[in-house]
Amino acid sequence: MAIIEVKKLSKNFKVKLKEKGFKGSIKSIFKPKHKIVKAVKNISFNVEKGEIVAFIGPNGAGKSTTIKMLTSILFPDKGSIKVLGLNPMQDRKKLAYEIGTVFGQKEQLWTHLTPYDNFKFFGAIYDIPDAAVERKIEELKVLFELDDFINTPVRNLSLGQRIRCEIVASLIHNPKILFLDEPTIGLDPVVKENIRSLIKRMNKEYKTTIFLTSHDVGDIEKLCKRVIIINNGQIVLDDSMENLKYHYLNKKIVEAKMKEKINLDDEDGITILKDKGYNLKIEVDTTKRSVADAIKLLNPDNIIDINISNIPLEDIISNIYKNKD
């Protein structure tokens, strides 16, 4: 059953224009000019219950605008949205009880208070009885390992600890869907990994549907089974991670250290990426040529060391962005 249904959704912004310099500033007072920016153009997609979906795209692609329309923050210009069967614009309050949001770049916690007091606050605004809030805090404290700092004012927490608390605060009311907008932004790799595993655990334990935007390929690769790529306000790819890898990971990178120099030119299925005499880096398109073929070309007896790897997902995604521009 689709828990989020988006049909032909569009959103335009009116942006003020100003000609350069002082003259332009004066002119803009008397003759203001505007331009229409089409942030989201006629997009449609569904999200099923319990899914973890990555909604990604370059800066200005329209992903935050979309997430804000789904969470009833922005009014769409055209199209329809149903989240848990509710219209975010008409049933804003009702929907608020059913969804949780975490914006990595925006604090929703009260910084002078402790995480515990913050959780109590969120419990109160979601009308949860006191005893139920206490139980939930206890449960989430264990799941998110907050014991060491649950009574430390938020302003004294590290970024990683704060993000953990932000996520917990958005889970106090048992939301059915959690919208995470760049939850790991600015975190170090260890903390990122920790947050990812907690998100995964949460999805498993509570069956919470997770709709995630991120610039971090690690988040997408490690958390999501499905990815929607948006660029210039349009969906350019909506596929499972498996398919994405299958279709786009048909290229392998072969790096070899040679005993003797070898003369190799680009040929069908093989592209020379780097040739430094004894060190060679080639890209093999496996739809045209097998990796074994490529190695034969290098002469296996001549190879001292070899490394065969996939193209990084980051490169795949940026290629998708570029190709669909």
Binding site: S72, I73, R92, K93, L95, A96, Q108, I125
Partner: peptide
Amino acid sequence: GNITYNINKPY
């Protein structure tokens, strides 16, 4: 635009 972060809360 910070006001928007209060919009989707139940108050």
